[in-house]
Design a protein around this nucleic acid. Structure first.
Lengths: 193, 193
DNA sequence: CCAGTTTTAGAGAAGCCTCTCCAATTAATT
DNA sequence: AATTAATTGGAGAGGCTTCTCTAAAACTGG
């Protein structure tokens, strides 16, 4: 019975992703999303009560998409070293396949206004992070190391280092070189020992 | 013969650093700097022709301070592996000693408006980066590896990985744990082989 | 004490952004 | 055909920011 929507939520989020990729989180304004999609500002405010909600949702949708694939890579192998190497590759491969979303991920939740998020969004973000961190902890444990420092080292190897590799090229305005996945995997292997 | 200044450039830059550390680059506005220092907006514009110049100078002052110490660590040892380990430690140690400036460095030049900088600022930034990259290239060479990929791996080990370690803790709102320098050094050693 | 120079001091225009509000539109249901 | 509900479409208030401009202040060398 209602009038059919012309500007659905995912469409607006897609625009927000592109804006974040090109102009950074501060470039994701309600008016910029409106202009880019051709929607009137009223339609944007019909989908998101305020800018904070838009920023939170675009961040969460992106991190959840990333984490879903990352988690799959990390749990898809039995041998922990193999799993780690696959996860490191996966970070780079996902960024290669989704350059705009990857550019968004290189910023932190803080830059997407996390400090102003309502509890529900914070909870969602924490849950995703906890899930990944839990898997990384299990991996560290199955490597025989159970200290917090060992977990931190594994996290550096399987998350932060591949992300850094991507960041370096993105910041230089380059596309990811063909060997990037190999390099991430080699580095992860070296760090896992 | 002139009236003595009450708000000198370094004072305004110090305020800009604090603002960048707490509110990010977008929080570094001319009015915020004015408010924080108690200066009238006219005085801020007397020191910086526009916001772009303020952002550029606060970025450059900080990176140059960091790079000076980093370069010293990287060239302070004869053995390349020892030099690399010292450099990795130095990144973390410097961030520990200068938390606000470190928080600023975790953002990129792009976020400080690099795209709008006049040539002179771009040149200064490039020169600093070239200098560090040159030293890292020499180190890779003295390790017997001379391919671009080897240089990239060394850069990851001695710059990006320690920076990631710092970023992870800063984003979590934590202070750097005592073992952070050790961890950075261990990881660098593992990656240098 | 005067002349000269830098700096302070702050008012105000112009622009962009967020957000509110309400009338008009559109399609399914009755 | 009338009703109903979601959505569009856009005007406009209010706030913050950048930047300009002018006048006054403060100090020093002559």
């Amino acid at each position: 019975m209602p009038r059919p929507p012309r500007f659905e939520t995912p469409l607006l989020l897609d625009a927000a992703v592109r804006l974040a990729a090109t102009a950074g989180p501060s470039g994701v304004t309600m008016s910029a999303v409106a202009k880019r999609t051709g929607a009137p500002s009223g339609s944007v405010y019909h989908r998101f009560p305020n800018r904070t909600a838009l920023l939170a949702e675009v961040w969460l949708r992106t991190t959840e998409r990333f984490q879903e694939r990352y988690h799959a890579a990390l749990t898809g192998e039995d041998d922990p070293r193999r799993a780690g190497r696959a996860a490191a590759r996966q970070v780079v491969a996902w960024c290669r396949a989704h350059p705009d979303e990857a550019a968004l991920l290189l910023h932190g939740a803080e830059e997407f206004g996390r400090a102003d998020w309502p509890d529900e969004y914070v909870r969602r973000a924490d849950e995703g992070n906890r899930r990944v961190l839990g898997t990384l902890t299990a991996l560290a444990k199955s490597l025989g190391e159970d200290t917090p420092q060992a977990v931190e080292r594994v996290t550096l190897a399987l998350v932060d280092l591949p992300v850094s590799l991507v960041r370096r090229h993105y910041r230089a305005g380059e596309v990811l070189p063909p060997h990037a996945e190999d390099l991430a995997e080699e580095c992860a292997a070296a760090l896992l020992g």
